[in-house]
C-alpha cells in the first residue's frame, strides 16, 4: 500500500497557529470573553470526542474488511446507482460536525471514492434525523416533509452537477 510507510505529518499547522495567535490577542484585550470562547471550544471538543472515536473505528473497520478494490467498487467509478444510494444514506445517518468526518472521507477518496459521491454525502447531511421532531415543532409537519424531500433530491442533483463539472475539467485537460 502506498500509505504504509508514510511518516506522521501534522495537517493544518498554520490554521492552528493562526487560531492560537487570535486567542492570545483576544486574551490580551478581553480575557473574560477569551476564556469563555476557550470554554465553548472545549465543550465542542468534548461533544465530538465520541464521534471521533466512531470515525476512527469505522475507518479501521473499512480498511480491515474492504480491500481498496472493493471500496472502489462500492464508491468508485464502477459503483453505479449503489454508490449514490450509500452516500446519500451515509450522509443522512452521520452525526456531529462535518469536520469530524473529514479523515474518513479523505481515506475513502484515497481508495477511489468519487468526488460527486462526497458532494452527495456533504449535502444530505442537512437532514438531521434526531432533530426532525424539533423541526416539526417549530415549522410544522408539511414544511419538514417538503424540506427533507427537496434536500435529498437536491443532494443527488448536486452530485450530478459535480460529476458534470469534473467531466468538463477532464475534457479541458
Amino acid at each position: 500500500m502506498k500509505s504504509k510507510d508514510k511518516p506522521l505529518t501534522f495537517r493544518g499547522k498554520h490554521l492552528f497557529l493562526t487560531v492560537l495567535c487570535l486567542y492570545i490577542l483576544f486574551f490580551l484585550f478581553n480575557s473574560q470573553s477569551a476564556f469563555l470562547a476557550l470554554q465553548k471550544s472545549a465543550t465542542v471538543f468534548t461533544k465530538i470526542l465520541p464521534i471521533i472515536a466512531v470515525v476512527i473505528i469505522l475507518t479501521a473497520l473499512l480498511n480491515f474488511f474492504l480491500q481498496p478494490k472493493q471500496m472502489a467498487r462500492h464508491l468508485g467509478h464502477e459503483s453505479g446507482i449503489r454508490g449514490w444510494f450509500w452516500s446519500l444514506l451515509a450522509g443522512v445517518v452521520s452525526h456531529g460536525p462535518i469536520y469530524a468526518w473529514y479523515p474518513l472521507l479523505e481515506n475513502l477518496r484515497e481508495h477511489g471514492m468519487k468526488d460527486e459521491l462526497i458532494v452527495v454525502f456533504f449535502a444530505s447531511r442537512a437532514i438531521k434525523i434526531p432533530l426532525i421532531p424539533i423541526m416539526i415543532d417549530y415549522f410544522g409537519l408539511p414544511f419538514t416533509l417538503l424540506l427533507s424531500f427537496y434536500m435529498l433530491f437536491g443532494a443527488l442533483l448536486q452530485g450530478v452537477c459535480m460529476q458534470w463539472l469534473q467531466s468538463t475539467k477532464v475534457q479541458q485537460i
Binding site: L8, T9, F10, R11, G12, K13, L15, F16, T18, V19, L20, L22, Y23, F26, S33, A34, L36, A37, L38, Q39, K40, S41, A42, V44, F45, I48, I52, V55, I56, I57, T59, A60, N63, Y99, A100, Y102, P103, N107
Partner: peptide, 27 residues
C-alpha cells in the same frame, strides 16, 4: 486501528483550529 488513529492524530491541529474558531465565533 493504530494506523487509523495515527492518521486522525495527524489531523488534530486542523480539527483544533476549526474548533477554536467555532468557540471564538460563538462568543
Amino acid at each position: 486501528l493504530q494506523k487509523s488513529s495515527l492518521s486522525f492524530l495527524a489531523m488534530m491541529p486542523l480539527l483544533l483550529g476549526v474548533i477554536g474558531l467555532v468557540g471564538l465565533f460563538q462568543v
